[in-house]
Nucleic acid binder design. Structure first.
Length: 724
RNA sequence: GCGCCCUUAGCUCAGUGGUAGAGCGUUUGCUCGACACGCAAAAGGCCGUAGGUUCAAUCCCUACAGGGCGCACCA
């Protein structure tokens, strides 16, 4: 054996060998007699990485944990399937490519045109995909590449169109003129979950619209007041009771407003003046008030976050400037009563950083509150029961059909559902699934194919990327066709993903799957934490603190990279990345290698394994039994999702119990002067315990364990398919 | 505002109703049959603070402080 494990070359070789043997593919395993035809299935999807660039240590940690699960279950003899794929990540990818093109050619997407631009995005996505694939492979992930999917490939596109059409025909997808989160920077709508609320200091202005209006109001956005149609007060507020129902025609800085005073419970009498100027077009709350009181929607701000008020002085002004203009005017006219600094949250689009402008727009939505009759299903709801999508999402988790771990995230999940509004699924970007709806005059059709007749025009918008991700557990298995894969592997066993996408993805998959299949997408959701840098910051491109796992793999090997991101982080907890840690686990893999070398060098002459096995003495048998107890412990930890404990246990056993104690105390018995029988028994004992150790370490550090298995000829196949 | 999590050795973190563990780091020895990416030892902790429950609390309960996160329509 070489003095060191040459991971730089050997890891690649070993991975190729696994792949060539076809062990990542469950059917091949059945064919080769590795797995029984009727074995229990274990299935899981890889959360598809975005094709926006390269993977970072967070992905590496995810791959490590998921591969532990996969390899462990495969070694248990289960029909094991782990599906790879990538996500087109519509907005993220498009804006990335837009930036690149602008940097290179100073052109924007409109300069290129839709077709040419999409060509560029596809090219980028393809390159990005290839990088990602090689990174995933370098990590040793035992994914079934024959089933690789992309959220935007033909099969998945068909699934998306099919899904859209069905939901549309069932009346759960509707097109409506409603107030949405508009991102003026990205020039698109975004969903509620793609909006970050950032605390900032704002100014609360307290004033009257005009001298002849009786009520004083307060707002942080006086420029929107040109769009006011009402003043809302709490119905129980004695100060304003007399005004409720009255209408006023007033002049607000040169614009005529028709203000009706309405009573509404959302108004907090304690805040400000207890009276709210209602701007239905530019505030979610106000839009709802307007719906309740049948008020007009008057838009005064446009898609570029500029004032749109024909003939008025503020027309074309940026909202920020208009705000100051209005404040100034109010002051001049003596209408401004108070101006105070307050803390307030502003909404920003998480992808572009653009300040969200709530605007009324004609968009596509999924109705989460609409009642419908559920058909035959496997989620324990009587067929014919009236349900809503919200119900379904809640039901499967409440009834524990879907288990969420760590449990604390359940609360987060329920809370999200309780506050959930209709999901806006249309985006004004080009990259993504084009909305499968065609128009001709007043006619509207959702179709999976382009209509053959002339005159139909397809909707220009694309779908929220999470619409296609939501179908992932079953679209990757061939849905809407009724495939064998679906029958065998769905619902999937586990979904392992980061806790930051519980709403985006986990909840949407539950929604889609319960609706389309009447089934759960997965039995267990296991959420891991975020990998942070030494200062505890999230890894991000803007901070330039991301670590490319390939660098770590090159320096210390994939095994070390894997183990370092598993040990030291409990379920759901964030993990701090440190190169020092990776290094120390590299030392561990060297340790394993050296133990193997020791065994190779000290093999008794004329050693016959089977014979030695039969002639093991009682004491050695005892020792082997003890080692098997450790394996049970490791199994238990893995099954309870305590991977960090399982890894540590196995690590500690090999290094301390085995190498430092057992091996040391057995050295004397391996002496040539020793009785040959005892020598063989001692050697067999060590060999066997070592074999058990590398088996339990294999899911964590597959390469070095596979290599020493081969070097010592511990079996006649490959370690990855040995039985646990 | 509501909710959640964290606070244990210098650092990063495990852990348990019976006064604590790992890795790294530090110190001291070591060319002892594979391994200096190593071996053998050692130092180092009123387990955030204050109460309570208990025969017994670092672990359970309550409050507080500091740190982090999620959600939210406070105009």
């Amino acid at each position: 054996m070489d003095k060191r494990f040459d991971y730089q070359n050997k890891e690649k070789e070993i991975y190729n060998l696994w792949e060539e043997e076809g062990y990542f593919n469950p059917e091949k395993c059945v064919e080769k007699g590795v797995t029984k035809e009727d074995a229990e299935p274990f299935s899981m999807v890889l959360p598809p990485p975005n094709v926006t660039g390269v993977l970072h240590m967070g992905h590496a940690a995810m791959l490590a944990i998921e591969d532990v699960m996969t390899r462990y279950n495969r070694m248990q003899g289960k029909k094991t399937l782990w599906i790879p794929g990538t996500d087109h990540a519509a907005i993220a990818t498009q804006s990335k490519v837009e930036k690149l093109i602008y940097k290179k050619e100073k052109k924007n997407r409109h300069d290129l045109g839709r077709e040419k631009f999409l060509e560029e995005v596809n090219k980028f996505a393809k390159e990005s995909h290839d990088t990602i694939e090689s990174q995933i492979k370098a990590m040793g992930a035992s994914l079934d590449w024959s089933r690789e999917a992309f959220t935007l490939d033909d099969k998945r596109s068909y699934a998306v169109k099919h899904a859209f059409k069905k939901m549309y025909e069932d009346g759960l997808i509707y097109r409506g003129n409603r107030i949405v989160n508009w991102d003026p920077k990205g020039q698109t709508t975004v969903s509620d979950d793609e909006v970050d609320h950032i605390e900032t200091e704002g100014v609360l202005y307290t004033f009257k619209y005009s001298k002849d209006f009786p009520i004083t109001i307060a707002t942080t956005r006086p420029e929107t007041k040109f769009g006011d149609v009402a003043v809302a007060v709490n119905p129980d507020d004695k100060r304003y009771k007399e005004y409720i129902g009255k209408e006023y025609k007033i002049d607000f800085l040169g614009k005529e407003l028709n203000i009706k005073v309405v009573g509404d419970d959302v108004v907090d009498p304690e805040f400000g003046t207890g009276a709210v100027g209602v701007t239905p077009a530019h505030s979610f709350t106000d839009f709802e008030i307007a719906e309740r009181h049948n008020l007009e929607v008057v838009q005064v701000i446009n898609e570029y976050a500029k004032m749109e008020l024909e003939g008025h002085e503020v027309d074309g002004m940026k909202t920020k400037d208009a705000r100051l203009w209005v404040a100034e005017k109010l002051k001049e006219l003596g209408l401004l009563k108070k101006q105070e600094k307050i803390k307030q949250n502003i909404s920003k689009a998480e992808r572009t950083g653009g300040v969200i402008e709530p605007l009324p727009k004609l968009q596509w939505f999924i109705d989460v509150n609409k009642e419908f009759e559920i058909g035959e299903n496997k989620i324990n709801i009587k067929s014919g029961t009236k349900v809503t999508l919200k119900h379904l999402m809640k039901h499967v988790v409440e009834s524990n059909q879907v288990e969420i771990l760590p449990e604390r995230f359940k609360k987060v999940y329920f809370h999200w559902i309780d506050n959930l509004r209709d999901w806006c699924i249309s985006r004004q970007i080009w990259y993504g699934h084009r909305i499968p709806v065609w128009y001709k005059g007043d006619e509207v059709h959702a179709e999976t194919d382009t209509p053959s007749e002339d005159g139909w025009e397809q909707d220009k918008d694309t779908l929220d990327t999470w619409f296609s991700s939501g179908l992932w557990t079953f679209s990757t298995l061939g849905w809407p066709e009724e495939t064998e894969d679906l029958k065998t592997y769905h619902p999937t066993t586990i979904l392992e993903t980061g806790h930051e996408i519980i709403f985006f993805w986990v909840a949407r998959m539950i929604l889609m799957t319960t609706y389309f299949l009447g089934e759960i997408p997965f039995k267990t959701v296991y959420l891991h934490g975020i990998v942070r840098d030494k200062q505890g910051r999230k890894m991000s491109k803007s901070l330039d603190n991301s670590v490319n796992p390939l660098d770590m793999i090159k320096k210390y090997g994939a095994d070390a990279t894997r183990l370092s991101s598993i040990i030291g982080a409990g379920p759901g907890n964030d993990i701090v990345f440190s190169e020092q840690k990776v290094k120390s686990y590299r030392n561990f893999s060297t340790k394993i290698w050296n133990v193997a070398r020791f065994l190779e060098m000290n093999k008794p002459e004329n050693y016959n394994r089977a014979e030695a096995e039969n002639n093991l003495n009682e004491k050695d048998k005892e020792k082997i039994k003890k080692a098997e107890k450790i394996k049970e412990k490791v199994s238990k930890h893995i099954e309870e999702f305590n991977f960090h404990l399982a890894g540590e246990e196995a690590y500690d056993f090999l290094w301390n119990d085995f190498a430092n104690n057992l091996l040391e105390e057995t050295k004397l018995r391996l002496d040539d002067k020793n009785d040959i029988e005892d020598k063989r028994s001692a050697y067999r004992m060590l060999e066997k315990i070592f074999f058990e150790s590398i088996k339990m370490l294999h899911p964590f550090i597959p390469f070095v364990t596979e290599a020493v298995y081969d070097e010592l000829n511990l079996g006649d196949k490959m370690l990855m398919i040995e039985r646990w």
